[in-house]
Design a protein around this nucleic acid. Sequence first.
DNA 1: TGTGGACCCTACAGCGGCTGTAGGTTCAAG
DNA 2: CTTGAACCTACAGCCGCTGTAGGGTCCACA
Lengths: 144, 144
Amino acid sequence: MTADYSIGDLPRETGCKVQTIRYYEEIGIMPSPARTAGNQRRYDRRHGDRLAFIRHSRELGFPLDAIRELLRLADHPEQPCDTADSIARAQLRHVKSRIARLQALKAELERMIAECDGGQIADCKVIEVLADHSQCLANAHPKA
Amino acid sequence: MTADYSIGDLPRETGCKVQTIRYYEEIGIMPSPARTAGNQRRYDRRHGDRLAFIRHSRELGFPLDAIRELLRLADHPEQPCDTADSIARAQLRHVKSRIARLQALKAELERMIAECDGGQIADCKVIEVLADHSQCLANAHPKA
DNA sequence: TGTGGACCCTACAGCGGCTGTAGGTTCAAG
DNA sequence: CTTGAACCTACAGCCGCTGTAGGGTCCACA
């Protein structure tokens, strides 16, 4: 049925490593495929599709638990898509908050670097600011 | 000399956990402090300063290896600050590239969510886009 | 049909940066 | 002197892989 891929054939489409595929099987987000008489894995096209789904989701930053849920949903096309939607929205919120935090860090780093005029460590703003948080913009980089 | 803090006193200033301080000592970025007769750690003010430096650097996203180097530099104030500068610049480049990547992800997630009109999974754009990378903007989220 | 080498197998350790747990000891207030 | 909070070490676990060791299998070509 369909084709017959070895584990080494799948990465050629999706760019992920062989060990990663075995890892995905181990944690149960890729199904255990058929085996040859010599115990080697043999996949078909649907395995490739599933792996592509997983890799794409990872590229968008979804954690494996969320992907597990998204795959479960993808397997039940007749159900409502609220859950898929809310997983994606949660991921979007997460991405937005990371961007906000990184932009604060960027501002602080730029200020630090701009104020350093390249003399000795003793006068170096980079070291000085790191040593003294109170020189930072208020709440520029909250602990969280 | 100076004061005499227990390990539990340090976190009150810096907000980091007791185990984390012990971990920093284990990996050699915090010095081994004196011990009481009963083998408990006793710190002085300089330990607190050093921990604050480390925590602040972590908040700015510096990896521990970079912090190790920054601390070494901070201990030699007569030397030129080129290295400190270039570590900070490298960190800035790193932060910028993470921002760029996250902004691409954000755009893709927003598009995905906007196109989903809340029906069945079968028609759900979130699931569909995840299953088919070619529906993404070109190079929207490169593998790296 | 034999053989060589590319591929595959399992099991487990390691990455970064902590965090949590178990099981025991010490300190200091009352 | 007693209590209980804080301390100690040692080690496992988190995420998402990646790498290594020490084997076994597959298949194209001679």
